[in-house]
Every structure is written in structure tokens, then in C-alpha cells.
Design a protein around this nucleic acid. Structure first.
Lengths: 131, 131
DNA sequence: GCTGTACACTTACACTTGTAAGCGAGAGGC
DNA sequence: GCCTCTCGCTTACAAGTGTAAGTGTACAGC
């Protein structure tokens, strides 16, 4: 299995389609990506095959089509990726990462609120001694 | 210039040395990486040359050595990377990213505190009208 | 039953990356 | 003044990526 934190943008785009839909044929994936990325149908096929060889996804046959499905979860990839970014770029410092995130994006105010709640929840949960 | 969010682990490791030290010769970079990565001196040289061709770093001559220096800041790379991860993996949702980060690492309690302060500061600053 | 279409499979090709050895030139020691 | 050590520069090569065309095969419509 390829390192989950080293997936390329294109590979992630394909996985994203699969994650959102649960499963999809090559044509469906192509359809979703053609507008934004302008890839040929054949190209999408090649990408799917390669990702399957790397065990990032699987397929089942339905008639003569293949229906693809992600073999890794968004959570797993997210975890590996965040961990990697944290290490490589911020020396493991979560505050540094969050700070960067805050200034990297037009952050919606509601999001900041949500983050605060997350942190609060995490702190409460962390305070409790192990049962 | 190569896309700043698509630097490989190895490339980031080299940049990290340069960021920490300000500038360094090929030998110095090698010295810092050889223990953790076990690369040959020559390999480091190749990497440096390639990164320079991609305008990620520059050098000046000092005697017959080259002294390399990053041409991009940690902040720039961090920004591009975080933005990319946010988009590709979390559909732009900062809370989702933070949540993932919280469960991805053994987060130090002090770090959580710091994050909370950051958020609070960000909120205060956001509230104020432009002076 | 024949034909076109639409699949998956095979092959192609340029570019980047990881990894490093070979070569030629200059600096330092004797 | 010669030898060796150490630089950077050039070359190498396998693997992976982005991009896609060619090929064989099976189903759908006529």
C-alpha cells in the first residue's frame, strides 16, 4: 500500500468522488471530474487501475462494468496527511498548524466557533482520569 | 516554481534544514540528514541542484563551496500546504481539519491551551472594525 | 446475424523523484 | 611541483505520474 500521506492531488480527487458516492464506475468518476480537470475517459481508467494496484481502492464487476470503491477511508488518509504535515512543516506543533490554517483561508466565523467547541470538548474529555 | 504544496518529504527535509540554519553548504545539509535518512553526500548534492532549478532555493559561492538558502519561506509553504489539505481532504472545513489533528497526534496539553488562545485572539481581532 | 459502441486491458511516452557513481578542477599538504 | 581530497557538474537508471491511444471483446440495436 502506497503511503497514505503521499497521495497526489489527482489521486485525492478520484478518492474524493468515491468517498462521496460510496462507489462509482469509471464513467461516473470521469463525469464528475471532467469539468474541473478535463481528463479523458481513458485517463481516468488508467488512474483507477493504478490506484487499485496500490490497494488504495477495489472494484467489483457489475455486468461488464467495474464498480470502484475506496479501500481506505477519508479518516485514515486525513490522519496520515495531517500527521505528516504536522511533523514535516510544523515540528509537531498543533498551534503552529492552526495558526497557519487561520491565516490561510477565508475562515467562516461559524467555523471558528466550531473549532473552539471542539477544543473545549477535547479538554473536558482529557481532564477526566482514566476510568 | 514548483507548486509549493506538492513538495515531497525529502524536499521538505532539506528545506527544513535551510530554514532552521538560515543557510548551509551541501555538506552541512548532508551532515544533518545522514543520521535520519542515510543519504549519500552526492545524493544531497543532486537534490539541492534540482531544488534550485525549481527555484525553491538559491545559492551563493563561498570559496569553492556553495552556500544554499531557501527561496521560499516556511510560512509560504505552510500556507500553500494547509490550504491544499483543507481543500482536498476536508472540503475547506477548518473544524474537520482541527478535529483530525487532535486525534492524529499525542497532543500536548499546553498545545491545546495555546490553540484556544489563538482562536480567542483571532476572534477578538475579527470583531474589531478596520481602523 | 452483423455492426458499432463502450468496456477493460495493454502499451506508450515524457517528466519527476530517489538514489548515486563518474569526471574534471581546484585547494592543501608535503 | 605533485598527489590527494573534495567540490560541483554530468550522467544513469528504475519507479511512479500524468496523459492517453490502440486492441480485443462482448452486448445492443438493426
Amino acid at each position: 500500500m502506497k503511503e497514505l500521506h503521499a497521495l497526489t492531488d489527482l489521486q485525492l480527487a478520484i478518492l474524493d468522488v468515491l468517498w462521496r458516492r460510496g462507489e462509482a464506475t469509471a464513467s461516473e468518476v470521469h463525469e464528475e471530474l471532467v469539468d474541473s480537470l478535463g481528463l479523458a475517459r481513458k485517463t481516468v481508467g488508467t488512474l483507477l487501475t493504478r490506484l487499485e494496484k496500490q490497494r488504495v481502492l477495489t472494484h467489483r464487476s457489475a455486468g461488464r462494468e467495474f464498480v470502484y470503491r475506496a479501500a481506505v477511508t477519508r479518516r485514515e488518509v486525513g490522519r496520515a496527511t495531517v500527521r505528516n504535515v504536522l511533523q514535516r512543516l510544523f515540528h509537531g506543533s498543533l498551534p503552529a498548524l492552526v495558526n497557519q490554517a487561520l491565516e490561510s483561508e477565508e475562515v467562516k466565523p461559524g467555523d471558528v466557533q466550531r473549532v473552539q467547541e471542539l477544543i473545549a470538548a477535547w479538554q473536558r474529555q482529557g481532564e477526566e482520569p482514566e476510568p
